[in-house]
Each structure stands twice: as C-alpha cells, then as structure tokens.
Design a protein around this nucleic acid. Structure first.
Length: 271
DNA sequence: TAGCAGAGTGTCACAGGAGG
DNA sequence: CCTCCTGTGACACTCTGCTA
C-alpha cells in the first residue's frame, strides 16, 4: 500500500477508535493532512473503500474501518509497545493457574487481558465442532419459569431461564431430567434434534428445543464468547457516559447473549 | 410530518508539473 | 509543444438530526 494511503488508513482507525463516529475527509484534512485538499483525501478514501479497508455506513457518512482494515492496521501500521517483563510474568503466572477445561481457560484469558489492559476484554474459544450434550439439569424457579443447566463436551456450562407454557413442579422436572440424561447424554446435536422432532408438544419438547438451540449456538461458535470483569473498567472511565462505546458493547453482548454477565457485573459495581 | 441546516460525498473541469 | 498524471475547488446531491 502506498505510504499516503497507509497514513490515511492509520488516521481513520485512530479517529474512529477514539470517537466511534464515521470519519470524514474534512476532519482528516483539518487534523492530519493540512497540506492536502479534502477532495484528494476523498479520492484516497474511495480507493481504500474499494480495496475493502474502509466502509461507509450510508452515502453521506464518513468512513469506518472494516475488519480487513483493522487487520492491516494491526499487522503493519500499529505502533507496538514492548511488554514490560513484570506484565509478561504476570500473564504467564495467571495462565499457568488456568483450569484445563475450555470454559475455564477462556474465562481466565479474558480476566487476565482485562486486568493487564484495564479495559473490557472479550475472549472466545475456537469455533466448536460438532457439539455433544454431556448432562442436563432443570430447576424450577416459578410455576412457569425454569432454569436450564446444560453441560456440553469440553465442560462448557450453559445456563438459561426458560418460560414454559404449562406450570411444572420440581418433581416433574426431576423426572424429566433423569429421562433426558438417560436418552441424550453423550449424544451429538443431530441426535438431540431428532429427539426434539419426535417429542410430543409439552414440557419435554420445550426443554429439548432449548438444548437444540444451545448446541446450535455452540457449533456456530457464537456461544463461546466470554466477557469478564473488564466491563467494570469501562464504567470507571470518566468519558464513558459521553461515549458511544457502551452502546457498541451492549450490541455485541446482546448478539452473543452475554448481557446478563454485564448486568451482573454492573449491579455489583454501582446503582 | 415537513422543512431546514449541516455534514459529507462523488463528479467534473481546470491548473500545474513531469516526461517525451 | 503535447500528453499524461495528480491535486484542487466548486457544485449538486444524499442523509441525518433538529425544530416548528
């Protein structure tokens, strides 16, 4: 990439990661390229967009970096700081202590990254292959509300509150989970899905349906995202209230169904 | 909900420099 | 002197947010 395009891409990434607002040619000209006209910068922006490094939310908006643009920035343009030896040692010590299961390891990585960067950290496991159910438990919360606890292969734990159409007692739920564990433990998602299709309408079908959804999400990899206590670091930042970062974080969390993790952390932190 | 202002874009004609 | 390339300014257009 030509050096001027690199400089413009670097400026766009810097501006956008600071303000979270699409970056226009005039903003770039006034802050970074006083010797160029805005039309020249627009021309370069258009070429960067054509090459896939930038995108435009709508016709009259500025540009934002694409994943491709961020990748290029990280690989070639970012100024890397040397990691102090003390931090290196801290990371090594923390990861040595990490549990051997996937969930525990990913949580440890997120927690360590949050502690080192004093920011929010999101870590994900590699995309799941074929998911296998290990164990299921269903606990009664309210007459028509139950807590589904699902253990997947690799010791990944999933919890979900489920609204059921008919009231269910704990006795009935215990009987149901015993039956499900007997018939579905160790089964692949395809077999669980077949079980769902063959189930009659009612509590069993609703519970198995949720298990199918959880297994699907595991296979797609989206469920492997883990957020740890770095969210509190975001709240502590003075500019946080003015920033659109919260909105972005919420959108990501909502998509990945980890909003409850965020709320749990916030409730523990402030009103 | 319509109108308006502001921000930003794409396009085009033009100017200036480099090279043949 | 001509051609090509690059950069610039101007203008029309789109979209968003605000206000009456």
């Amino acid at each position: 990439m030509e050096s001027r395009k690199q400089a413009i891409l670097r400026a766009v990434v810097h501006e956008f990661t600071t303000s979270a607002v699409p970056v226009g040619s005039q903003a770039l000209q006034s802050r970074y390229f006083v010797n160029l006209s805005s039309a020249t910068i627009r021309s370069e922006l258009a070429e960067l967009a054509e090459a896939g490094y930038l995108a435009q939310p709508h016709t009259s908006a500025g540009r934002i970096p694409t994943d491709h643009g961020y990748r290029y920035f990280v690989d070639f343009l970012m100024d890397l700081e040397a990691v102090p030896e003390s931090v290196r040692t801290y990371i090594r010590d923390e990861l040595v202590k990490a549990p051997s299961d996937v969930q525990g390891l990913v949580e440890k990585v997120a927690m360590t990254a949050a502690a080192v960067t004093q920011n929010a950290a999101v870590a994900s496991a590699p995309q799941g292959s074929q998911a296998r159910m290990k164990h299921v438990d269903v606990v009664s919360l309210e007459p028509t509300e139950v807590l589904l606890i699902l253990l997947l292969d690799g010791n990944l734990l999933r919890q979900q509150v489920l609204h059921v159409s008919q009231p269910a007692t704990q006795v009935a739920l215990t009987r149901l989970t015993a039956m499900l564990n007997q018939s579905l433990a160790g089964r692949l998602s395809e077999e669980v899905r077949r079980h769902y299709q063959n189930s009659e309408l009612g509590l069993e079908k609703e519970v198995v349906g949720s298990i199918v959804v959880a297994l699907d999400q595991y296979e797609k990899g989206a469920e492997n995202l883990v957020v740890h206590d770095g969210v509190r670091n975001l709240v502590r930042q003075p500019e946080f209230a003015e920033s659109s970062r919260l909105q972005q974080v919420l959108e990501v969390l909502e998509e990945t169904r980890y909003l409850t993790v965020l709320l749990r952390e916030l409730i523990g932190e402030s009103d």
